[in-house]
Design a protein around this nucleic acid. Sequence first.
DNA 1: CGGATGCCTTGACCCAGATCAATCGACCCG
DNA 2: CGGGTCGATTGATCTGGGTCAAGGCATCCG
Lengths: 248, 248
Amino acid sequence: MSHHDPKIADLNCGDCPIRHRAVCARCETDELHLLESIKYYRSFQAGQPVIWSGDRMEFVASVVTGIATLTQTMEDGRRQMVGLLLPSDFVGRPGRATAAYDVTATTDLVMCCFRKKPFEELMGSTPHIAQRLLEMTLDELDAAREWMLLLGRKTAREKIASLLAIIARRNASLKKAPGTGGARFDLPLTREEMADYLGLTLETVSRQISTLKREGVIVLEGKRHVVVPNLDRLLEETGDDSDGGMLN
Amino acid sequence: MSHHDPKIADLNCGDCPIRHRAVCARCETDELHLLESIKYYRSFQAGQPVIWSGDRMEFVASVVTGIATLTQTMEDGRRQMVGLLLPSDFVGRPGRATAAYDVTATTDLVMCCFRKKPFEELMGSTPHIAQRLLEMTLDELDAAREWMLLLGRKTAREKIASLLAIIARRNASLKKAPGTGGARFDLPLTREEMADYLGLTLETVSRQISTLKREGVIVLEGKRHVVVPNLDRLLEETGDDSDGGMLN
DNA sequence: CGGATGCCTTGACCCAGATCAATCGACCCG
DNA sequence: CGGGTCGATTGATCTGGGTCAAGGCATCCG
């Protein structure tokens, strides 16, 4: 792939699209050079596994472009997605030798990898990296806890609305001006993946999406492209506190 | 309370029961003195709120003794517990002004509090604190993700068995030798709190406990004291991978 | 002592979402 | 072009766990 996309393969950190949001966000130029010396890019096609739970992890990494999922599987096959990794999100745990979850690319994916050993050493000597990683981990913990509320207490309809709202919000924050009360985006997940994320079956996901469509809360253009004519209307369906839940 | 328990009120860090597991675990003697100068103890009675979600947080803290819970509540009253805080666990997020969750003492509770501002400054100058906090946060994130699997995919019976197994494991690790295949402990939570933790109703919790009792997986002595004659048998009921799920 | 309160248990019934199954459409490939 | 595959939809039916309701059993207190 890389011969088609020299921009990524040869990227230097200063021009990196996730420069200001990833683990390296707080690094100074000289620190960046150190990171640069231990980094390498890897690409994965949509659907490819990145690593299996229990595998030895030789690296930690940041998602540069694309989307990956973190899932846990029970021996009888029940699956639960426990994380959705978007550009700038971090994969892997310094100090741990093996992966705790399955990581899968759900879209074409580019990751910026750091060999684990040198990265851990760098963390010791570069507080900016550890600081940023702590911040990101705390954010992930908050997200995980919000998801616990969804999994434990929300109805199927609320779960779907919440997922759509999260994807809509993410796209709004990175793509266009917050502008009007609407939104439009592509679903990066299949119905089954959504079901694994929401603790539902794929049939229930499909039915609830159909219901929201029938009621005009969303409009579908094809199976995957969603138009939300009125974001507030969608938000009402999530069951969340009406205000945006101001933290910080 | 403190006049009844001078051991806690006047505790110095060197003698602290959570010295080697809390945020301060990696601190050297001199760093400990700095922490000592900004710390103070607070006690709460069983059932008392520690803080409400949205409240201004003037401190961060470690649980010294007792148990506290972290819960989220939807405006219609649905509640989900998102964390169980045991001795040495950390409460509060450096860099955040208000609490994101309700924190409640479920047993009598003693917390070692640090004023937030000085603590944040100390974190900047004392990498040992930030390092340990990162480590603890990563552990909590793993626990939260394990809980997501439970909430999203386990049956009521598996949820109850998992909760009992977790409490049994914790008690085994801190109290007596792993010894035989059995365990005995007091439940630190009411049926309703268990329900809030497991994403169930209190009636379902009660029924499943009765079923496990009827089948001899557990023996109840009173409502709160549980005897597990055969821990492996209980573990089989959790739905988890039979091996202890070796991470690290 | 008798009533109130808090926590728990148990029963009867119901329903949201799971399960089982058929069908559809888009896309790919021989 | 015809058949195969993959994802999605929709229908029919079933069931685990929710809901509603009635007690039970300690503990506390006037």
